[in-house]
């Protein structure tokens, strides 16, 4: 199932599983990346977070901190952590098609 879908959605990932080019992002890519990372099924709350992360990145060229996501989506940080079990950076940023952040963060 997931293999056939991988063929439908052509993912260009870097070595850490992040999309290579953000502009090529589509919703179906996010679904596919989520499935590969064991996240989901994606709910409205997931999409709210993803949308905010993307818009924030497009403005500032950097992903937003989790407290900021919490503030804007009305979810608590704990809820966000449950939505994206492998962390905001690896989960939400990845699904949103952001490039991998570089430093210790």
């Amino acid at each position: 199932m997931s293999e056939s879908r991988a063929r439908q959605v052509d993912l260009q990932l870097d070595g850490d599983g992040f999309l290579k080019t953000m502009s090529s992002w589509t919703r179906s890519m996010a679904v596919e990346v989520a499935e590969r990372n064991g996240i989901g099924p994606l709910t409205d709350d997931h999409w709210k977070v993803i949308a905010f992360v993307r818009s924030s990145y497009q403005t500032y060229r950097t992903g937003p901190p989790v407290v900021k996501i919490a503030r804007h989506t009305g979810l608590s940080a704990a809820q966000i952590c449950r939505l994206f079990p492998c962390g905001v950076v690896k989960g939400a940023y990845r699904l949103a098609g952001l490039p991998r952040p570089a430093g210790c963060a």
């Binding site: 403005t59 500032y60 060229r61 950097t62 952040p101 570089a102 430093g103 210790c104 963060a105």
Partner: peptide, 11 residues
């Protein structure tokens, strides 16, 4: 190390 710009910092 994050490659963040001034705008991101100010935000």
């Amino acid at each position: 190390t994050d490659g963040a710009g001034e705008a991101a910092f100010r935000a």
